[in-house]
Design a protein around this nucleic acid. Sequence first.
DNA 1: CCTGAATCATTTGTACGGCAAACGATGTTT
DNA 2: AAACATCGTTTGCCGTACAAATGATTCAGG
Lengths: 171, 171
Amino acid sequence: MSPTTPADVFDHNLGWSLAVLLRRWHEHVERALAELPHGSRGYHVLCATIGSEPPTQAGLAERLLIDRSVMTYLLDDLEAADLVRRRVDPRDRRARRVCITDHGQVVLAQARSLVDHVEERLLGGLPPQQRALFRSAASDAAIAVQRAAPDIDPCEAVLQVTGRAEEAEAG
Amino acid sequence: MSPTTPADVFDHNLGWSLAVLLRRWHEHVERALAELPHGSRGYHVLCATIGSEPPTQAGLAERLLIDRSVMTYLLDDLEAADLVRRRVDPRDRRARRVCITDHGQVVLAQARSLVDHVEERLLGGLPPQQRALFRSAASDAAIAVQRAAPDIDPCEAVLQVTGRAEEAEAG
DNA sequence: CCTGAATCATTTGTACGGCAAACGATGTTT
DNA sequence: AAACATCGTTTGCCGTACAAATGATTCAGG
C-alpha cells in the first residue's frame, strides 16, 4: 500500500535510533539524578571510579568522551559534595587518581538503582528477553568501538556532491 | 582475580554504551557527509522526507528531536543546495511541507550507502547475526520510546542525597 | 647533574548550538 | 467578527565544548 512505510525508513537508521534512545535516557536520568552535582555526568564518573584501580583524570576523560578541561569542573563539584577525592599518584605526581568516598559509594548505589529503573522503562517496548540481549549487545559493541577508536580512522569514502544547484536553478 | 572487571562496570551502563556508539557514529558520519549542508542532520532530514507524505517542519523537528528554530536554518541550507523544497501545504497554508528533490534523492542514495558502510564498521565488534539483531532491536526500542514519549513522564523516583559533606569535613 | 621535550591538570578565552521568547501569518472556535 | 491556537521565522541569551596558554612534574639525552 504505502511505497515506504515509516518503519521502513527508520529501520535502517541506526543513528536515529541511537539518538532517540540516548536522548530519552538522558532526559530521564537527568531528572532522577538532579541532586547529583552534574547529573548523568557525575553518575558516569562515579561508575568509572569503582574499577580495580582509581583512574586518572585523563583516563576518565577518555573513557567518558569528554574534554579534560570539563573533567576539572566536574571533579571540583563532586569533590565538594564529598563523593570523590583527588589523590596524587605517588608514582607519577603529575597525575591525580580519582577515588570514590564511602559517601560516594552509598550515593552511587542509590543512583544506580534509579538508573536501572529508568533503563528498564526505556526499553519497555522490547520483549523482556530481547531487552537483555540489546543491553549486552550495546555493551559489547561500545567496548569494541571504544577499544578500536583510533584504528577505524583511516579516511573512508566521502560524499561527493556534484554541484547541481545552479543547473536546477537555471532549469 | 580483579574484584570488579571493567566489563563488569560497563555491563550495566546502557547510557554509556549508547553515548559511545552515538558519538562514534556521529564522528564518522560527519566526516563522510562533510559535503552535505549539515552533515548527519541534513542526512536525517533527507531520510525523513521520503515517507508517504512530505512532513511539515514541525513534524520533522519532533521526529529528529531538534528545535523548530534550528530546523529553519537547516532547511534554508538544504534548500539552497537544491536537496529539498519547501512547499506550502494547500490544506493549511501555515505549514510548509518538506519535499525532496530529484537531486536530493540521488545525494541521499549516495549518503545512505556511505552511512551503511560506517554503521557496519561501527558494529564490527559484534558477530554478524548479532549485528542485525541489535539494529532491529534499537529501531524497535526507539520507535516505541518515541511513540510513548509523553507517557513515561509521570514523575519517577528521585535521588535523595543526604548532606554528608559537612560531617565528613568535620570528621 | 642539567637541559629540553613531553605529559597531567588547571585556567582562560572563544565559538558554536540549543533553548526561550517575541513576532507575523494563518487557521480554528465561539 | 473576535479571541485564541498553531506554524514558521527571527532574535537574544546561556551553557557547553573545544583550543590554547600556564605551571607542575616526569622522562630522555648529553
